[in-house]
Write a protein that binds this DNA or RNA. Sequence first.
RNA 1: GCCCUCGUGGCGCAACUGGAUAGCGCGAGCGGCUUCUAUCCGCAAGGUUCCAGGUUCGAGUCCUGGCGAGGGCACCA
Length: 620
Amino acid sequence: MIRQESKSPKRSETTLRERVFAHVLKVVPKGAKFEVVVSPRPEMGHYATNIALRLAKEAGRPPLALAEMLAKKIAAGAPKGFFESVTSAAPGFVNFKLSAATIRAEFGRIVKAGEAYGRVNVGRGRTAIVEYASLNIARPFHVGYLRNIAIGDTLANLHDALGYKVIRWNYLGDWGTQFGKLIAAYKMWGKKEDVDANPIGSLLDLYVRFHDEAKYRTELEEIGRDEFRKLEAGDEENRKLWTWFKEESLKEFAVTLKKLNVKFDVDIGESFFEGEMKPVVDELTGKKIAVRSEGAMIVPLEQFGLPPAMVEKTGGGSLYLTRDLANLKYRVLTYAPAKILYIVGNEQSLHFEQVFKVASLLGLAPQAELMHVKFGLVFAERGAKFSTREGNIILLNAVFAKAERLARDIVEKKNRDLSPKEKDAVAKQVALGALKYVNLRENRNSDVIFDWDAMLDFSGDSGPYLQYTYARLRSIVRKSQITSTSAKGGSASGGKSQAPNPKDGVVDLKRLETEGEFAVIEKLAEFPEAVRAAGETYAPNHLANYLYELANAVNRFYESTPILNVKSQAPNPKHQTATSGEDDDNDIVRRDARLLLVRTAAGILKSGLALLGIEAPEKI
RNA sequence: GCCCUCGUGGCGCAACUGGAUAGCGCGAGCGGCUUCUAUCCGCAAGGUUCCAGGUUCGAGUCCUGGCGAGGGCACCA
């Protein structure tokens, strides 16, 4: 099933950074290349550009002098009051300080954008297929999959936010020689009762045993291949076994996928393309792209610096690569995708280089951008690979159970007023948040060594830290709805007083004036670009890092600034507004402004977490 | 041998794709809970960014050559 069309979110104008960029653009020669970035040195300004450094040589002027001149021109060209200052700094940067009014106005825009904030319509409704999970029938769900699924799910979510129509595809590994081996093993040693009782577990045992014995019984490999040939030829008994294995496996997968809170639109697997491969091979040979070599059919690729790609085995069996080609053809015909992302580990780099190369030789998908989104392997320990064949894997369920127990203990201590059921639910969300986040916060290319402590660390740069930050904010909002009633004593809109709603026009943004408040707003303003960068560079860690920074700014604000009890307190006013004395009214107005900030920040944390596939509990 | 990744404080990682004084988490040190949830916040310590050259106003990032780790390279997926 395909999720509904994205409701064509209007491109919410531009971000602050883009507007600063536009002001620079007005005063520089056409075609000049430069960047405007969030300043790495906040004391120098909010944003900075390297334009003078870029133009200095061409202009034949020292960069700093040029920067100074440009600073003046930019300041003069911008609407009055947009910048607080535009200055130059060695070696030739131009720094922009935004005025308090600009920042407050930006906050107003963010509030107004509401839930749509962060959606950017660069995809314009084009289709993106994201292939991830790609579970293998009769193989257990081990921790390695977690990385794949966390990354794939996030990229799918991000593309949705970018305005693509996203198709989430769990490309099942349900075909190939491994099933011949499995069938052979079952025929030799398998018992129906065992499989019924524990399908994947017992099938895994058979698979492991097969490989153990194959080490000294070399004929087994050939027996396995033969059973697969029979399966492909439609042998009734093998067919039946295969179907049975698949059904049992899918049942188990469904449970785990539900636990992980991921859903797929398509779970068509390799077996689906069984009948589609012959035409592909025929086309390849017909066009003389593929040739016979040592009995097999290969596509020579040495002219592209690649080893030959085998598309048909000696004797006519199909291969993984052949199926990927057939699949690609099918996808292009069915969905006409603008891109296809293959979320698959690093170790298959060569495979995808070959697939893409052969596809381009065939002209299979001329319109589609094909992308192997690779990621580093998860190791058991230094130099020790997890191997299903060797049976040394850590099951996802085991990790999940351990994380859940830990989370449950914490919730137990913190929130005694929750019902046991609620506690369980929160514990699940926190555990899952922790597990997903560790897989998203780092550059996906690095290999990682599985580490229980890292998985279960709920402090610092972690999923639970973000969830906790959210829960604290929501707690304030909840409490405000009680105290607000007493403070205002039955206000305008009938009995129940709400936390401030911007549409009422009651919130005076001028009351936002502390450093902490501004820091949060400035961070909020970066959200759409964090989404965009993460999506366009296929780097979930950009978004994860951004959310961590946002949470950090929020927590600092939380620690330093009273929100519900503002009583005669305006710590470190950074931008003085004309204050006509601190009276109770002012306190209430200030409180409402801060509450609006709290609500908005909470909302964005929640959207951001949702993009990472992580739920945000209201209480922890 | 060829190809793909990766190499940054004790450990795990960032660095907006060539910009300013290389940031953060964990750990170890100090401080902050009768106050909106301490899974938090603050202060302080910790660096020759694997090595050697090169490119340029400017290099963790780019190029060349090394070194080290992991993965892949014909009938597995």
